[in-house]
């Protein structure tokens, strides 16, 4: 493990903590896309099935369980908590799951390293993670006032992606057998999706203003 990956993981963890704290402290999930959160839960379930049959490190296992637990906790708050669920922007969060899940599943069936159930599900999770942020970005585009915690949540997720790319570059340079084109291409697409958001995030941060995305 290198420093880039550790930073990436920590930003990922921090983004989830910020979101969970926002929901718990303000009893509100305004501006958060349940679709994106459910897609992330699906991503984690498909990718971390290896918890049952392979062990890499205590760190990895601990983080996997943490990501799974927090993802389901967020979904539970947004769907079932009596107070929180009333603040969910149901009418605005209209992105269709099938538009993301179906192409990713098809692609995973065709483009994978090995045609086994766990490998296809792992590959599916890589593809799905790349586009799972889209419902959140669409929701933010529709919301006039994006609160700071939501903006910071997405910015932290973007930082996680950025550090993972640095990690891949580092591993590509230092490890002989690190040739992961599936991960590379999905990762670059995923990070590129944030580029537009980051542009406006930086503009508003410089001007010390609340984030507003142009329509």
């Amino acid at each position: 493990m290198n420093l880039f990956r550790l930073c990436g993981d920590m930003f990922h963890l921090l983004s989830i903590m910020v979101l969970l704290l926002k929901i718990r402290a303000t009893r509100s999930c305004r501006g958060i896309s349940l679709k994106t959160q459910e897609l992330y839960a699906l991503v984690f379930v498909c990718r971390y099935l290896d918890l049952f049959y392979s062990f890499i490190s205590v760190y990895n296992s601990f983080m996997k369980v943490t990501f799974l637990a927090t993802a389901f906790s967020i979904v539970r708050y947004m769907r079932y908590d009596k107070v929180v669920k009333q603040t969910y922007d149901r009418e605005q969060d209209t992105f269709r799951y099938v538009f993301l899940i179906a192409p990713c599943l098809l692609l995973a069936l065709v483009l994978n390293h090995r045609f086994t159930l766990t490998e296809v599900l792992w590959t599916f999770s890589i593809y799905l993670e790349a586009v799972a942020i889209l419902p959140q970005l669409v929701l933010m585009q529709r919301t006039q006032n994006i609160d700071n915690l939501t903006a910071n949540y997405v910015a932290l997720l973007g930082a996680y992606r950025g550090f993972y790319i640095l990690n891949w570059i580092y591993r590509f340079a230092t490890e002989r057998h690190y040739r992961q084109w599936i991960v590379w291409i999905s990762g670059v697409i995923q990070t590129a999706l944030y580029a537009d958001f980051f542009f406006y995030y930086a503009l508003c941060w410089k001007a010390n203003k609340r984030l507003q995305l142009p329509a």
């Binding site: 993981d9 990922h12 792992w122 591993r171």
Partner: peptide, 10 residues
């Protein structure tokens, strides 16, 4: 194990 190398990431 080259195809498996990204499996040690999260």
């Amino acid at each position: 194990a080259s195809a498996q190398s990204a499996h040690d990431e999260l």
